[in-house]
């Protein structure tokens, strides 16, 4: 990945770090208060890490992994974001996706869209040539 795609990787990396840190605090510090929300936080963190790794690596398998994880993120932020507004009682404790990622400046909402745009613009087809840069 070259050019502005590097920036995408960097922002994904930061979000992965943020989500991991937060879910670490939640699970170590107060897991019993909201097991569902905090398990979801941990799952989200893992998915962000996988997405970051998939964006860094080349090849068809990683390309597909990137699509899957980024789609999962978009669904996550839309579904949890909507649920957290419609029925706040379901998610009394914040997750990275609550209220469409408000706690993270709405970056979790914007990032999957940018990621999909990037993947669509730079498809990986066939065997990846060793030297070419997209």
């Amino acid at each position: 990945m070259t050019g502005v795609g590097r920036l995408l990787i960097a922002v994904y990396g930061v979000l992965a770090l943020a989500a991991t840190g937060r879910s670490f605090v939640q699970i170590v510090g107060k897991y019993e208060q909201a097991p569902l929300a905090y398990s979801l936080s941990a799952l989200a963190a893992v998915v962000y890490i996988v997405a970051t790794v998939a964006l860094v690596n080349r090849g068809r398998g990683w390309y597909r992994t990137a699509w899957i994880t980024i789609t999962f993120e978009l669904l996550g932020v839309l579904v949890i974001g909507t649920l957290s507004l419609v029925d706040p009682a379901l998610f009394p404790h914040d997750t990275v996706w609550s209220v469409f990622g408000r706690g993270y400046l709405f970056i979790p909402l914007a990032l999957p869209v940018l990621g999909m745009w990037w993947l669509a613009r730079h498809p990986v087809t066939g065997v990846e040539p060793v030297t070419s840069d997209a």
């Binding site: 050019g3 502005v4 590097r6 920036l7 960097a10 922002v11 930061v14």
Partner: peptide, 12 residues
């Protein structure tokens, strides 16, 4: 050493 590295410094 690219311009995007500078942007990434800023993002950090």
């Amino acid at each position: 050493r690219s311009r995007w590295s500078t942007v990434i410094l800023g993002v950090a």
